[in-house]
Structures are given as structure tokens and as C-alpha cells.
Design a protein around this nucleic acid. Sequence first.
RNA 1: GUGGGCGUAGCUCAGUUGGUUAGAGUGCCAGGUUGUGGCCCUGGAGGUCGUGGGUUCGAUUCCCAUCGCUCACCCCA
Length: 422
Amino acid sequence: MSKIIVPKGTYDLLPDDTAKWRDLETKIHQIFSEYGYGEIRTPLFEHTELFQRGIGETTDIVEKEMFTFADRANRSLTLRPEGTASVVRAYLEHNLAGSGGVTKLYYYGPMFRCEAPQAGRFRQFSQYGAEVLGSLDPRVDAEVIALAVNFYRRLGITDLDVRLNSIGCPNCRPVYRSKLIERLRPKTGGLCSNCQRRLERNPLRLLDCKNPSCQDATADIPLITETLCAECGSHFEKLRILLDSIPINYHLDSRLVRGFDYYTKTVFEVLAGDLGAQNALCGGGRYDNLVEECGGNPTPGIGFAAGVERLLIVLESRKTSVFHPETPELYIAPLGEAAQLAVFPLLIKLREAGWKVESDFLGRSLKAQLKTADKMGVSLVGILGEDELQGRQILMRRMATSQQEMIPLDYDCIINFLKTEK
RNA sequence: GUGGGCGUAGCUCAGUUGGUUAGAGUGCCAGGUUGUGGCCCUGGAGGUCGUGGGUUCGAUUCCCAUCGCUCACCCCA
């Protein structure tokens, strides 16, 4: 019988890994709380239609990367490939707009895309992200970008590439779009096959094609930021003034275009050099028409999503973050069956009192037990052999100094000893 | 979906121009110390050499297929 292993693009997190993840998760919840965001948890699957309408029918994600299946009533469901569509759905479903003002939400959890796995890319992966609904003010854009970037800074990652662009709105983007098609159509032959295909459908994407010949073809095309309508232009200008007023390094990238259809105006990405081909740590932008497209009243919004696996890769490769493994505060080494029986209730009682205590369950020699305790990094070992048991005592050994002290084998005495040693 | 690289011990990897019991380091277990960790010494356990088929007297080695991992294209977090 062949061994069963994890599905492609998924992985197990073992105890050493989960310790790091939980540490990072704590920090994620903390920064969102400090910036005034409330956590939202939506289902891991939704009606397929939500993503088709929200993300866009012609995007790669919807066309070929979703895990879609039928339920027993033959309705099409899909494992969520991203977070924004679900948040908008929930925002409308629970009429969060009704409470008035700006709604600031964040999420954290697994997403699913059926792609070929690669460095920093998995089929089940984790993202955290923010969505701010109800304000068109560029201060919101700036705050969202600041939050995204400052989180990395807190973790000690400072050499990031923050890219910013505005891709306009339904008023000005079509103008740029047709201008682009007009300029590129004569050069069609020089484009890569992919770009030839998307020239008519989604010409903006040619701008960030990595193929050298496509880059040449688009080298002298006008910048989108020069053809923005008055509203988008002024919004973008205000955003830049705000970003310049806080210590965040970014640069304008007029070729930055993102893969989802719902983006309008502001788009941004944060890139890290040490991630291989999947170099985006997070990305996001404004989506002022998405809520309306999902059936709500016209409501502006902006958000971003960040990859957790990629962040951990960067943290590991730079060793900028120190994760503290939890070491027991005491290791009790019983010698012989009588001692084992005496130690067991003590072990449970100490744990219930909140102490991290370990012991031996293999009946091994004292030497082996000390070795194990040493490996765990424990600083105190309580040794209970027959002699100690007879005298109702326990020998407390300080591993760092090899100093030993006999104390009464009594719960309160041991607690007191632990407290003074701590 | 396409292309490159790789699958040998828990982990990191040697190796075999086809030949008898497949190796190292590390980790693990035990002993050296009848009850004292880190250093050292000795010994031990642990492998269907990814899987299936083919060639051959004989395959971990050669051939084919397949699966998996990985990197890149693509896309994106």
C-alpha cells in the first residue's frame, strides 16, 4: 500500500513551526488592533458566483485557479482564493454600513488557489489583510499603506521596495486603455504570445510583462498617471503628500498593474528581494465600485492582502526575528517505580497551578533524564530517587551551576522554591 | 499547463564505469560513571536506494513509465 502524503501545495506545521506562526499571529492581531481594525472571520468557502463577480471573470484566478466543487444540492461552491470578496459580501449581508462611518475590518486565515507550487507559493496559504469601507479620502489609502509597511518594519524588515501607482477609474481608464491599444497594435508582432492575446482584452497588463521584447514595445508609451481624470489625479496627488509626511519610503511605478478587475485609483505592492519569483510580500489597492457590483449602495473601499508564508521566509532568511521556544521551568526525574508514582500527581498539580513541568515517561536512567532536560534547556531538575523518597525530600539541581539543594517533597515547598529560583 | 534540477537512514548528503553484508556526518538509544547533563570514548538500532515495469545470470546503478519534491515560465500573497 502506498504511503499517503499531503496534497500538492499543502504542508503540515509541526510544533517548532507553529510556535513561530503563533508568535507572528499575535503580532498581526496586535497591529490591527492598534490601528483600530476589527477582526472578521468569513467562511472558507462561498458561492462560486461571489468570486466570479467580485474578482472578475477574465482573471487567471477565476479562470483556472479556483478549487470549485458542487454540494449535494448541486450548487457550485468555491474555496476562497482571496479575502476581499467575502468581506464585502459580509459587509452587505450584515449591513455594516448601517452603523455609519468608516468600517475598518481585517482578516487572517487560509486561502486556496490551484496553482503549481513554487517558492513562496502554495495551494493552501495564509493571508492577513485589511479592508476599509465607506471613505474615499486619500488619508485612508495612506493609513492602509502605512499599516502594511510599518508591520514589516516592526519585524525588523526595513529594506523593502514599496511601489505605488494609480490606475484610474471607469471615467479615465478606458481613455488610457484605448490609447494603449492604439499605440501597441502596430507592434503586435513584437509582443510575447501572452501579451498578443491580452492586448485587446486587458492591455494594462502588458505594462508589467517581464518579457524584454514587450518591455521594449511599451517603453515609450504614455504614463497612466498623466491621463488620469481630475478626480483621480487630485486623489493621487493628495495621497503622495500624505505619504511624504510620514517616514515611509516608496516610489512611483507607473507600470504597476494588479491582477484583479476590481481595483480603481490607488494600487500598491510591497516587494522583498529574497523571495525568488514570488517577490510580493503584500499588495492591494482601492476598489470603489466593488460594493456596488456586489449589489450594495455605491461605497468606496480600499484594502490589501499579505502572504504569511512569504513573510516567514523573509524573516527566516534574515534571522531578524527571534522566536522564543517555550522551555519547561522544571524537569522532574523520578528513579524507580515508587518515585514515578509519587511524581505523577505532583506533575499534574504543578501544571494546574500554571507551571510548565516535564518529566520522564520512559523509565530511563538519571543520566538519560538529565541529558533530556539539558536538551530542553531546562534550568531546574528535581531528582527523586529512593533515598529522597524515604526521607520525604527532593533534590533540586540547578543545571547551569550544577549546584544541588535538598528540599522537602511537599507541594508548597516546591512552589516556593520555584518562585525564588525564577 | 510547459521546461530545467532532484528523489539513498529521522535530518544533511556521499556512493556504485551493473556484482556478494549500501556508507559518512548529525540526531536517536545504551555503556564507559551500581543515581548526575554539556566534552570525550565504545557499541547499537534505523534503509522495500520514491513507485511500477523492462534489459540482464545479477539493477540502488542502465532504459521506459509514473508519482513526488523543487526552481523557472505564467500568475500572484
